[in-house]
């Protein structure tokens, strides 16, 4: 058939018949099989495809119904496209590890930059935690991580940089080590770094039943811009307050980086 047969000891050569259907080709590449169906994918993550596949922006008129049922994140609309047609399509992201996950009538929240693609049987919504997206329903999605993903059970405290996402809603909150908090000296240390900071005084804490997904390095993947949520009372991160704002406790002016805001509060100023 072809003169370019698989070379003896060389790498595996794939064609549409030997590519896996909805599975990994290698650690860094995932193959999606489309049979007239649709997939949502983040822009620019398709590296190659066989067959007839069309890519359309979320605003494409014919996709209106689909978008109504499974895409509820207007802030991300410009980052996502819908692939439809038939064929096999390869997805990859900056040579990071990619993996597919199956949700069975569940929910999962994931860092916005890590999600590559999902089936339209899942609904995508924005998490109230800024920069995270939540998938709800039944179906498959593909996510990238820097290094393999490990699954942990709460209760657990995790490093903010290693967190990829969490499933089945354990409740996440911030946790600061006590010595970092206690007294004026602790405050000085936290702000200036004098007297030794390990860089691990601040963690995310998860409690409740569920699963926490971690990546095995602390190198964050570049964040996809997530825009701003509407400015409404009660919406975390909404409005024009700087990301460091402390709600009712903040003293009016937004705190600038390097300002001794927390120290001032300790002294009751």
């Amino acid at each position: 058939m072809s003169t370019y047969a698989t070379p003896g000891a060389g790498p595996a050569v794939y064609d549409p018949l030997t590519l896996p259907a909805d599975d990994n080709v290698n650690r860094y590449t995932f193959c999606v099989e489309l049979k007239g169906g649709q997939w949502f994918l983040q822009k620019g993550k398709m590296i190659a495809y066989y067959g007839a596949i069309e890519f359309n922006g979320i605003g494409h008129g014919r996709l209106d119904r689909l978008v109504r049922t499974s895409f509820h994140s207007p802030l991300h609309a410009s980052d996502w496209v819908v692939a439809q047609g038939s064929g096999k399509m390869l997805l990859a992201d900056r040579a990071f590890d990619v993996n597919s996950y199956d949700l069975d009538d569940g929910n999962l929240t994931i860092r916005a930059g890590n999600l590559l693609a999902f089936q339209p049987s899942l609904a995508l919504k924005q998490s109230i935690v800024p920069g995270f997206l939540t998938l709800i329903g039944t179906g498959k999605f593909v996510a990238a991580s820097n290094g393999p993903v490990v699954f942990m059970e709460p209760p657990i405290r995790v490093d903010p940089q290693a967190l990829v996402g969490w499933a089945d809603c354990p409740s996440p909150c911030h946790h600061y080590d006590h010595s970092y908090m206690a007294g004026v000296l602790g405050g000085l240390r936290a702000v200036t770094g004098f007297g030794g900071v390990s860089g691990e005084e601040h963690q995310f804490e998860f409690v409740g039943a569920g699963t926490v997904l971690l990546q095995s390095t602390e190198t964050l993947m570049a964040e996809a811009a997530t825009g701003a949520v509407p400015s409404e009372p009660g919406v975390p991160g909404g409005g024009s307050t700087a990301p460091g704002g402390h709600g009712p406790q903040s003293s009016g002016a937004p705190r600038l980086p390097g300002q001794l805001g927390d120290l001032q509060r300790r002294f009751g100023l």
Binding site: P11, V13, D15, P16, N26, G44, I47, Y50, A92
Partner: peptide, 20 residues
């Protein structure tokens, strides 16, 4: 990242992203 080798044959043309 390790390259994926894809066969092009007369019945299966291949479309590739220029960046990849």
């Amino acid at each position: 990242g390790p390259a994926v080798v894809l066969r092009v044959s007369p019945q299966y043309p291949l479309i590739v992203d220029p960046g990849a």
